[in-house]
Design a protein around this nucleic acid. Structure first.
Lengths: 154, 154
DNA sequence: GGTTAGATGCAACACAGTTGCATCTAGCCG
DNA sequence: CGGCTAGATGCAACTGTGTTGCATCTAACC
């Protein structure tokens, strides 16, 4: 199976997902969902915008596209350690990021990944309170940045 | 013991804490640390600014004051559900917020509180990664907002 | 092809947070 | 007590994220 075939069959899957959610299948949505599912880790708005390269999407359109994909459950949103949002293609598109696990972000290179091996723990909340969502973010140095730092120290 | 006596003894404690951390004891620092420790829950920059009322502090000064207090360990910083920061007076000043517990934020009234009854769990990170910090935020309706909503539904 | 609800692009805005620089002052020393 | 100075404050201007309003375009339907 050639690369291009793999890519094109994936594109058609992306198209189906979008249509299956009752959304109009526009180039912007295909490109964004396709890119997110190919990458498989939570990406910042700016990373997605940059990655699009020459075929630029309007800033606002990208925000709105991500919001629509999130509303339809095709993508979910996690918080960055600096307060901005990152987006990750949801289960149907790509394994990982089922939405109930912690995320790890490297404070040096800024890259983020899912820690999907363990579900979020249960934490007692005040009596009468109603839990809607949880975010667990772990910050630190990723293996490659930690290795670089250790090597520099020697 | 009168209110004013309690308040003034607390002020002197705040002064001691600031000086004890090797910081210059300025009106801005006393006011901010005093307010945070009196309130006892994580407050947003805007809430602190608003609360200062007529004796306004410059926006930038408040940011810098909070940064200095955080550097000295007198205050710690937690993330809001909308991505902005909240600040909470640290252990020496007030019980609560020792910094290794989850926080609960009401999506309706925006108020945030510490869930100090349980420490943050251990989550496995990738081999070679180095953990520096963790944030666990639970969003939902606080007891009073949940009660209001339930009453409205009836 | 023609129609139209919904998607896109553009301009302008709101807000959090930061930086540079001029001015002021807490804490020290004489 | 009064003067000195590193460090604190205030102001202006800026960056980046995210939002809103409106005019234009187009995917999906007939």
């Amino acid at each position: 199976m050639s690369e291009s075939h793999a890519r094109s069959s994936q594109s058609s899957r992306v198209r189906e997902l979008i249509k299956g959610s009752g959304l109009r299948c526009t180039p912007a949505r295909q490109a964004v969902l396709g890119f997110l599912s190919r990458t498989g880790r939570p990406l910042a708005h700016s990373e997605i915008a940059k990655a699009r390269g020459p075929a630029k999407l309007d800033r606002v359109t990208l925000y709105r596209t991500l919001a629509v994909l999130e509303d339809s459950g095709l993508v979910h949103r996690v918080q960055d350690s600096d307060g901005s949002w990152r987006f990750c293609a949801h289960v149907p598109v790509k394994k990982g990021c089922p939405g109930n696990h912690a995320h790890f972000q490297c404070t040096r290179c800024g890259e983020m990944q899912c820690l999907a091996s363990q579900a979020l723990p249960w934490i007692p909340v005040p009596d009468g309170a109603l839990v809607i969502g949880k975010q667990f973010l772990i910050c630190g140095l990723c293996p490659s940045c930690a290795a670089t730092r250790a090597a520099r120290k020697k």
